[in-house]
């Protein structure tokens, strides 16, 4: 059951991202230059662009660099956790065990720590603004004083951000609580299911988050 849902979820997310990417028509000319040679190499240019997003910019202060580094560590942990967690269950149809489990458990601790740090460091910059939903303001007959103009995908990014952190709670608790002598066999099975499904949704949200974040950066670059 989980295997089917996971495969369906990953396929749907990837297809959704690709469809959105195709429909949203990013301004490649503005990002990579209108007169760039060999447009067939655009996918490669996108990859290079995405790689540059991982860099820590020199202009940042220490806190900014730290935020980015923590994010990169969390991202790395997420990738490792996703591989070690989903490969055995989705590709091989077996429960996570052996070295998969060993690496998974080690990375889980680091991931939890980096996510806690990210929550503290990034929460404030991910607050919602009143201008995100103009139609909602219209309904309330409000005239917000704020003149902030949100980025194109800012709302989606922030929704994903908070959803990811909400999901972090069942992800962590279901794993940690199972290590205590609290729940019996049935409880352990339920905890495992909670862990698997919450992790699945967290991973899918992380993919969407990263996609929108990348798209947002692309838009910003295009606008400069």
């Amino acid at each position: 059951m989980f295997r089917t849902i996971a495969i369906t979820g990953f396929i749907a997310t990837v297809v959704g991202v690709l469809l959105h990417f195709a429909v949203s028509k990013p301004k490649f000319d503005n990002v990579f230059g209108k007169d760039r040679p060999m447009k067939i190499l655009d996918p490669l240019r996108i990859c290079v662009f995405l790689m540059t997003l991982l860099f820590v910019e020199q202009k940042w202060n220490l806190v900014g660099a730290l935020r980015k580094l923590v994010f990169l560590v969390a991202l790395f942990c997420l990738v490792v956790l996703a591989i070690t967690g989903f490969v055995p269950s989705v590709f091989y149809g077996v429960a996570i065990h052996g070295w998969w489990l060993f690496i998974h458990a080690i990375m889980a601790g680091v991931f939890a720590a980096t996510m806690a740090a990210l929550a503290v460091l990034w929460a404030d910059s991910n607050r919602f603004d009143k201008n995100y939903l103009p139609w909602f303001n219209t309904i309330l007959r409000r005239q917000p004083k704020s003149t902030l103009i949100p980025d194109e995908y800012e709302l989606e990014i922030k929704i994903c951000f908070w959803a990811i952190f909400v999901l972090m709670l069942p992800v962590i608790l279901s794993a940690v609580v199972s290590m205590f002598k609290i729940f019996g066999t049935h409880g352990q099975v339920v905890l495992l299911d909670i862990h698997r499904y919450s992790t699945l949704f967290l991973t899918l949200l992380a993919i969407i988050y990263l996609y929108f974040a990348a798209l947002n950066e692309m838009e910003k670059t295009a606008g400069r």
Binding site: A108, A112, A123, F165, L169, I172, V176, M179
Partner: peptide, 18 residues
């Protein structure tokens, strides 16, 4: 590991609550 992850969980929960 248990202590670290529980503390992390508490921090995240605290931020979410805040």
């Amino acid at each position: 590991l248990k202590i670290v992850t529980l503390v992390c969980c508490a921090v995240i929960a605290g931020v979410l609550l805040l």
